[in-house]
Amino acid sequence: MQADTALLSGVLFAVSMWLLLQRSFVKVLFGFVLLSNAANLFVLMMSGEPVGRSAPIVGDPGPVVDPLPQALVLTAIVIGFGVTAYLVTLLYRLFLDSGTTHVDELYADEPAEREKSK
């Protein structure tokens, strides 16, 4: 169980890294979404092997899984939700402004722009 989860989060990390290094911002955005999921899965693993243990709080007898990593993941999911929504909106704005989200086309006029008093 732990090995499967480790493998899955490893694959997610690898795929998200590959996406983050792409030259299109849409892919970077997807990379970020996958990365936060990979991280959530990774931190969830820290509560240990869940087999034979029940959910905390509800009052089932017997050993319970460690609830702290779950609380951390919940917080991170909320934050990730907000940041993702922000990035989507920003990317949409970028697309409306420039008509593209590809790095090469977005920054093509960079050197000329830099000369302007910014």
């Binding site: 970020f32 990365l35 936060s36 991280a39 990774f42 931190v43 693993m45 820290m46 702290l68 990593p69 951390l72 991170a76 934050i79 990730g80 940041v83």
Partner: peptide, 13 residues
């Protein structure tokens, strides 16, 4: 931030 989150998880582990 995501890396930081992983670091927090590792610390707990």
């Amino acid at each position: 931030s995501t890396l930081f989150f992983c670091a927090a998880g590792l610390t707990y582990g």
